[in-house]
Simulated assay, not measured.
Amino acid sequence: MKKIFILVISFGLSTTIFAQSRKYISQFSHLQGYYNPALTGYEGSMIRGFVRNQWAGWEGAPKTYFASAELDFGQLSGQASGDILGKNAAGISILHDQYGAFAETEFVASYASRIQVGEKTNLRLGAGLNYRSIRLDGNSMTTEQADDPIVGQYFGSFSNMQVLDFNLGIAVTHPNYYVSYAVHHVNQGAINSGDVFMERMPRVGIFQAGYRNRINDNLAVATNFMYRSQSDLPDNLELNLKVVLKEKVWIGGGHRIDYANNFQFGLLFDKMRIGYIYEMPMLRSYLLSNVTHEFMLTYVLFGERRGMIW
């Protein structure tokens, strides 16, 4: 069975389709600023942490770790209040992902600027500087990778590659909804150093949208949508729906088209929220049947938690 798992992992890790290492995060609605720099600081100044253990129980299964800090300059100066925060925000994100023979660490520094176009509606523009370090362990290669003309030359040794790139984003936001679009790898990884064991990275288009509303004092709903496209991979479509009870607990579910379903549970506190997801792959996706666990924690830096969750 372990050999089957290795084949599944190695399917997308050759040089020509290296981007098969796409990061799946079921709680994507809590990490808006990572996917789109224009949404940096949308929920105010916050610290976020995240762990994803994919296909739990399998040796070498992908593991993802994430941490970020976002700062709204209006809150820092004490001028921001209510649902309309400051005009500028900045953030930094660190994501580490390990899958098969590859270990990848990504640093993203992002900046967003807000233009108020309505009483509570804003147009946000953002840019991010993306630095990625990729380590290849030649001792963990599969047979297919060892036979690859580019990656195979590192069989039995270690190699490292660094890539510098840019992300751009635009968003329309409101306390009850957001619509956004971002492009990752704008320069397609043209600025790189070290051992070049992968071709240029394709640009990734990311469309996100969400809506939330309070039905009464004890009940609120939130739904989110994300669509990703790039030239060398099938399109990725994810949806989720949450029900928030008394601003204390949320329950919900999500679906990744043709890939997985998940159940969600979370707790809300004055300055903190904790989320957990139990994800199950779909049988027709031809992936391993083991489940995936996700844990998420966010902490509000200034004041108390603002409004409902996404």
Rank of each mutant, 00 (worst) to 15 (best):
M1S: 14
L13S: 07
L13P: 00
S14E: 14
K23V: 15
Q27S: 15
Y34M: 01
A38F: 10
Y42Q: 06
E43I: 02
G44M: 01
M46F: 08
I47W: 07
G49I: 04
G49M: 08
R52P: 05
A56Q: 12
E59N: 13
T64L: 12
A67L: 12
G74K: 02
D83P: 05
L85N: 01
N88P: 02
E106R: 07
V108N: 04
A109C: 07
A109F: 15
I115G: 09
K120N: 15
N122F: 01
L129V: 13
Y131G: 13
I134K: 01
G138Q: 10
S140C: 05
T142R: 00
E144D: 09
D147K: 11
I150C: 03
V151Q: 13
F155C: 10
G156A: 11
G156W: 08
G156N: 14
S157K: 09
M161G: 06
D165F: 07
Y178Q: 08
S180T: 11
N187V: 11
G189A: 08
D195W: 00
V196N: 03
V196G: 00
E199P: 04
I206W: 03
R212D: 01
I215N: 06
D217V: 04
T223F: 10
F225Q: 08
S229L: 07
L245S: 08
K246R: 11
G252H: 09
G254L: 02
G254K: 02
G254T: 01
H255P: 00
D258I: 04
D258W: 05
Y259Q: 11
A260P: 03
N262W: 13
L268Q: 10
D270R: 09
D270G: 05
D270V: 05
M280A: 12
M280I: 14
L287N: 09
L288C: 08
S289G: 10
V291K: 14
H293S: 09
M296S: 14
L297T: 04
Y299H: 02
V300H: 04
